[in-house]
Amino acid sequence: MARVIVVTSGKGGVGKTTSSAAIGLGLALKGNKVVLIDFDIGLRNLDLIMGCERRVVYDFVNVINGEATLNQALIKDKRVSSLSILPASQTRDKDALNKENVGKVLEDLGKIYDFIVCDSPAGIEAGAMMALYYADEAIVTTNPEVSSVRDSDRILGMLASRSRRAELGLEPIKEHLLLTRYSPKRVEEGEMLSVEDVEDILSIPLLGVIPESQAVLKASNAGEPVILDTMSDAGKAYQDVVDRLLGETIDFRFLVAEKKGIFSRMFGG
């Protein structure tokens, strides 16, 4: 059975798509068959981050409406052959999806893939509800600031009440906390909530902490998921997240501000 993982947050701009892309690619690099689905109908960002925006012919909505087959719409990643992307439509809106047909598509994908990663739109409306409805697991992406944490809390409530698992009374969705854009220095200066603060408020297991990094923006613009930048902190942190998702126990890193040594000070490292 495929693991259906939704990457969600409530709030926009916290790094859902960046995380979906990095985690999806990371899982595929580990030899898993992975499909990334862009649920953000109308905006279409995932294919940009994945660097396959010029290869989109058919999209998710075409498949839902029976205008194209899954095989026609799925885009195979050029870097890793076990990874596919199902892009969102840019000309439709979020109402183009319906539960029944989405369920059918996920079921078909589940027969082929090990992981189905759903990149959720922001907000708590129909689009976000659709992305989380069939999930087995949820990666709740949160920035260490009050409003993002509040929105994540709201989404956690939705996961517990509005998902298929909740409606059928099955085992609840497995929740993971992914803290992104974390800056230990700003936490020390009291400008940002700490990992402990966020864990205390949301009280769900921590999956990873991604440090604030220039590498993320660079990766997004280049269409190369940041996990491929193995030299960057963010890339390493996403690699840890992937390993944890696959059941490994790995210590958290990048939680404290680095003390700059004399050499790095001198050479601006």
Binding site: D153, R154, G157, A160
Partner: peptide, 8 residues
């Protein structure tokens, strides 16, 4: 039993 989340 369990946390009561924002909006609930």
């Amino acid at each position: 039993r369990g946390q009561i989340r924002s909006g609930q």
